[in-house]
């Protein structure tokens, strides 16, 4: 068993809240190490209070065990903190097609300054004439927008 094979198996696990993307391309899985018959998987939380974390941890462990490892350890690391920049371009495109505006490139901006002066394009019609309805949405990682062009409300990934 090689680490590549483990990575490939883990890439089959969908994100519990956004099933069109998987936990590897979301940047949640940070590392895979194999030592004899033991696999150590390192993961990082997206948002610290995300209720999907337990589920993701369980699924990582179950998937690695199914590959035949006697012992599987899933470790959580906080550093460096997860950023939406780690979501792969392919996954961002899939988010958009799913109806969720993907995050913008995150900069190391000062956290006290106003957020997002640049408009978020509507994932349906592409219009830049959109406005934020709520900084908080149905999950911790998303905000609610409305498109003033096609009149549709939509979710957008928060840029962190």
């Amino acid at each position: 068993m090689t680490t590549e094979q483990v990575w490939k198996a883990l890439a089959q696990i969908p994100d519990p809240e956004i099933p069109v993307v998987n936990v590897v391309e979301m940047g949640i899985v940070r590392g895979v190490e194999i030592e004899g018959n033991k696999a150590t998987i390192t993961m990082t939380p997206t948002f610290s209070g995300c209720p999907a974390l337990h589920l993701i941890r369980e699924q990582l462990e179950r998937t690695a065990r199914a590959l035949g490892f006697d012992s599987v350890e899933v470790r959580t690391v906080l550093s460096p903190p997860w950023s939406t920049d780690w979501i792969t371009p392919e996954a961002k495109e899939r988010l958009r097609r799913y109806g969720i505006a993907p995050p913008k490139p995150s900069s190391a901006q000062d956290f006290l300054i106003e957020l997002e002066p640049a408009p978020t394009p509507c994932p349906r019609c592409g219009s830049l004439n959109t406005s934020v309805k709520n900084t908080f949405g149905p999950t911790l990682c998303k905000a609610i927008y409305v498109c003033n062009n096609c009149q549709e409300p939509f979710e957008g990934f928060k840029t962190v």
Partner: peptide, 21 residues
């Protein structure tokens, strides 16, 4: 204390949304 500094980096990214709101 590295574990504290790491937790701070994590939390700070979420806190700015609260303050803005």
């Amino acid at each position: 204390y590295p574990p504290l500094a790491e937790a701070v980096q994590k939390i700070i990214r979420e806190e700015r949304f609260h303050l803005q709101h």
